[in-house]
């Protein structure tokens, strides 16, 4: 186990940021700390990095007791949401920073920087200043800078949070591929469940200073431990007293035994999917409507007022 966190807690005055956190983060994997803003996930990441102190408990990194080590001695790479670039240094000097501090030979630094810039596709920008780069490029530079010192663990704090949706998606794919190449133990914080589901090997859901659930993306999505996790990872609706995902409901046009009978109250098309509101028969209030998501093909000739039978879909 690469990072062992035992009994970590943090309070800011009256506010409890973290409460008795126990967590093992495996070596070589990409782990996401997922949760709503203010839930404590960034605080936990900063405690691992040594940028924040813990009130109690211990942090161990690759077998080294690190609870009271200053950030310089932890050998972690940290990437910030807002890039934290060194504005007055060129891209190459930014990446070289950690190596220069470690007083490595000039030739070695040069070679390593060239290698890293290649890795993050910034070779042609080596002599530019960070101000001349786009947000996505700056973040890739920050990543190369963090990787330059060959950290034991790479910590990313909402790394794509400040980027626009398209760049975000590209960088997310790129991070996954990069991790497959580099294999450094990586922990990243995000509030975007799609990002976590797409990139991470393992997700830790954190809310109100506590860990709600730990698992693989599929485990969390299909078998959420509680309502919070279910709701945070994706949309949920209630069918016959059970909590299910709107796309896990089959819609039938004729009577099916055991189905919930109702009529379509509203049809909303969003791009490739169609969202139905189905009002169960028997005078249920509108707030009890079942939400169903279908592909366009399946939703053909369904209009408001159509009578439907709903059953939970079999998950194969």
């Amino acid at each position: 186990m690469s990072i062992e966190i035992r009994g970590v807690a943090k309070r800011y005055g009256d506010f409890t940021a973290l409460e008795n956190i126990d967590l093992s983060i495996p070596t070589g994997q990409l782990t996401a700390l997922l949760g709503p803003s203010g839930g404590g996930k960034s605080t936990l990441l900063r405690i691992i990095a040594g940028l924040e102190t813990t009130d109690s408990g211990t942090v161990e990194i690759e077998g080294t007791e690190a609870t009271h080590l200053p950030p310089q001695k932890r050998n972690v790479g940290f990437v910030f949401q807002h890039y934290a670039v060194f504005k007055h240094l060129t891209v190459a000097r930014n990446v070289a920073f950690g190596l220069e501090i470690r007083k490595r030979p000039k030739a070695e630094i040069k070679e390593r920087v060239a290698e890293l810039l290649e890795l993050v596709h910034l070779s042609q920008f080596a002599e530019r200043l960070p101000a001349q780069l786009s947000g996505g490029q700056r973040q890739r530079m920050a990543l190369a800078r963090a990787l330059a010192v060959e950290p034991t663990v790479l910590l990313l704090d909402e790394p794509f949070g400040a980027l626009d949706a398209k760049v975000r998606k590209e960088l997310r794919d790129w991070l996954r591929r990069l991790h497959d190449d580099v294999h450094v133990t990586t922990v990243f914080v995000t509030h975007d469940q799609e990002e976590a589901l797409e990139v991470a090997d393992k997700i830790v859901v954190i809310n109100q200073g506590r860990i709600e659930q730990i698992g693989t993306p599929d485990e969390l999505y299909d078998e959420p431990a509680n309502e919070f996790v279910a709701g945070f990872l994706g949309p949920v609706t209630e069918l016959d007293g059970r909590t299910v995902r709107p796309h896990d409901i089959d819609v039938h046009r004729e009577a099916v035994p055991g189905a919930v009978v109702g009529s379509v109250a509203r049809v909303l098309r969003v791009g490739f999917e169609v969202r139905l509101s189905v009002l169960p028969d028997g005078g249920a209030p509108a707030s009890r409507a079942v939400q169903v998501t279908l592909t366009r093909a399946h939703a053909r000739d369904l209009t408001a007022g159509t009578k439907v039978w709903l059953t939970p879909a079999d998950r194969g």
Binding site: G50, L51, P70, F97, G98, A148, V149
Partner: peptide, 25 residues
């Protein structure tokens, strides 16, 4: 403080951070 923290996490001491990052800024 982010760029200062970045420098710290890259191994710079407080004094190095001041001379190399804070003062130029």
């Amino acid at each position: 403080t982010e760029s200062e923290q970045a420098a710290l996490s890259l191994g710079a001491s407080g004094w190095q951070t001041f001379w190399r990052i804070t003062l130029p800024s």
